[in-house]
Design a protein around this nucleic acid. Sequence first.
DNA 1: CATGCAATGTTGACTGTGTCAACATCTAAG
DNA 2: CTTAGATGTTGACACAGTCAACATTGCATG
Lengths: 203, 203
Amino acid sequence: MARRRKTYHHGNLRRALLDGALRLVEDQGAEALTLRAAARRAGVSQAAPYRHFADKQALLAAVAEEGFRALTAAMRRAAAAQAAGALARFRALGLAYVEFASTHPAHFRVMFGREVADRSAYPPLQAAALETFGLLVEAVAECQRAGFVRAGDPEALALSAWSTVHGLSALLVDGQLEALSEKGADVLAQGVTETLFLGLGPR
Amino acid sequence: MARRRKTYHHGNLRRALLDGALRLVEDQGAEALTLRAAARRAGVSQAAPYRHFADKQALLAAVAEEGFRALTAAMRRAAAAQAAGALARFRALGLAYVEFASTHPAHFRVMFGREVADRSAYPPLQAAALETFGLLVEAVAECQRAGFVRAGDPEALALSAWSTVHGLSALLVDGQLEALSEKGADVLAQGVTETLFLGLGPR
DNA sequence: CATGCAATGTTGACTGTGTCAACATCTAAG
DNA sequence: CTTAGATGTTGACACAGTCAACATTGCATG
């Protein structure tokens, strides 16, 4: 990698930087993501990234944004694989969330961590995150119509769901459960969503 | 502050560094915590901290440990203020957890984040974290005896509770809910724990 | 009490990072 | 073509973590 390029201009440096950044995060963790390292991977000088990203945070924001897109896609895929009804689809969303987190812990951390200090400065990031949450809200509404979830503000109920799966994901990703349980992420997710659905169900 | 000290030796540099670190984190966030800044605050040279902490992670681990102790204390206090029964005490634990997080977001992030990469290298940290989780397990068991929580492995059920309150806390602390809701942390916590208790309750 | 060792601080240096200004090169619009 | 903007490069600065070499001091032991 980092092979010499022939032309002075790169051609698509922005994309190359992003790809390099994504690989750095996935392979070596968020702290390995450095502007200079990304530049090196793209075979470009240390200052070149500044033509495409205002600063390191902007690059991180882009990485986070891609993460939300990938997460949303994975959740959609998982739900689509369930023809068996609204509740099954809802559950699939939650399990996919946890699975994404445990499969891509470093990426997950960039998506939610504070490396990107002010989210509102990156509207595309915010939009991508909101779309993910939207999946949950829709699923709640659908389950309400099907009688699997009790009446109430769908957003508020979806927040319960989000908190549950996000909490488990965060604890997993941050290694907080290593000392506590041998069980795999999927088993834990099953257990936790079980309680969640009992709580969301009609009385 | 950072006043000149008279003696060559500081007297209690370790404690002073920890206090400085805590203040830095609380006042300016985790990224402001730098070994050099902590040293400055203690009125000591840049390399002095290395006599008391192997590296930056060790200092962060100590900060995290203090955080868990403070969190545990706050939860105990909140539960003790509820004479009204097992379920009320359990709820108080959860609300105190979320309140701690939203009151000390930066500290909370150090406690759970990955700045401290390998927790198992810091047994006191792990112990402090385990004690916090222990509060939840005990509360679950107590609630089971009182008939407020269904039968089942207390640890597994406590993990549901932990996931829920931790998830909400993480989302709050990371600013993920700012674009979503005007409600205060306490209101959100009420709503989320409501669903949680419905899910944990006897069928 | 003297002394010498281990603990504790200090200095100065090295590497790596984010960032910027000044400069070089290329691309495409007129 | 020409030339202005876009895109890369070089060199520098400040600051961080960390280490080796050195200075100072408190304390246990003789």
